[in-house]
């Protein structure tokens, strides 16, 4: 604990709404008897260092930040919870219908738009999974959109860039995460006569609340109780849950990060 009974939660300010979210969660936690402060960082790299240095007690981490914390602590860190939407995320390969690409094998020599170099769903894992599927990634002409580096793809900006590039023909294909893709489709912002999906990746997991192993068990449990008591049917909670992109907080699991670890090994991107 950094200051008596008050714990500090770190989050990355990838959008102005982050303040609204954490003010709301802080109020909710206070109502549940857990006093918190939040500290906002502008990059996940800095947030990971802050967690390891004990400046914050708990960090709301991307998958990339999470696996780095696990590795830096030799697996002694404590995972506390994740969003329902963080489980079984998939990446998509989308193509222009006029590009004549119907399978991954046909990507060789073509332009593939990819998201930021630290985006798990739009860059790191799609390229890893392509390799796993037997595709020689080196033969694909990558069109990278390295926007908001440090935010690990949270802003979604690079994924929107990918979709736009494919729509406009600046790339024949693109890699994006399924949440952005499904949301764009539901909002009617995909021209399906121009662009379609040809491939969906295996599932992987996304964000996680991380703490170091020395966080007292009682504190960890109080945090989890307060977190899991947020309900979609409660209007006070619902607004926060909508902003944070979930309907329910769920228990942590580690099994969904194996592919990311392997990808970072392979890409030398730890």
């Amino acid at each position: 604990m950094t200051s008596g009974m008050r714990i500090t939660i770190g989050a990355v300010a990838y959008d102005p709404k982050v303040v609204t979210i954490w003010e709301g969660i802080r109020d909710h936690f206070a109502g549940a008897g857990l006093l918190t402060e939040f500290a906002l960082y502008s990059s996940y790299e800095r947030q990971v260092e802050a967690l390891l240095a004990g400046h914050v007690d708990i960090a709301w981490n991307t998958p990339l930040a999470h696996v780095r914390v696990r590795r830096r602590t030799d697996g002694t860190s404590r995972s506390l919870g994740m969003r329902d939407t963080d489980r079984d995320v998939r990446s998509k390969i989308i193509v222009r219908r006029d590009a004549g690409i119907t399978s991954l094998g046909e990507l060789a020599g073509r332009r593939l738009a990819v998201g930021s170099r630290d985006s798990t769903q739009a860059r790191i894992l799609p390229l890893y999974f392509l390799g796993q599927a037997g595709i020689e990634v080196g033969r694909i002409q990558l069109v990278p959109f390295d926007t908001d580096v440090g935010k690990h793809g949270d802003t979604g900006t690079s994924e929107l860039d990918v979709v736009q590039a494919v729509h406009e023909g600046r790339a024949e294909a693109g890699a994006i995460g399924d949440v952005v893709w499904a949301s764009l489709q539901a909002a009617g912002r995909v021209q399906s006569e121009l662009v379609e999906v040809i491939w969906t990746s295996p599932p992987f997991d996304h964000c996680m609340f991380d703490a170091l192993g020395w966080l007292p068990r009682a504190t960890a449990e109080a945090f989890e109780r307060a977190l899991f008591s947020m309900s979609w049917d409660d209007p006070r909670h619902r607004k926060l849950l909508e902003l944070e992109g979930l309907k329910e907080w769920v228990a942590p699991r580690e099994s969904g990060y194996e592919s990311l670890r392997a990808a970072l090994d392979e890409q030398g991107a730890w």
Partner: peptide
């Protein structure tokens, strides 16, 4: 493409 899209949409919409 519905084969790819439907499962993801279902996941996002619960």
């Amino acid at each position: 493409s519905v084969l790819d899209d439907l499962a993801s949409w279902c996941r996002v919409e619960r």
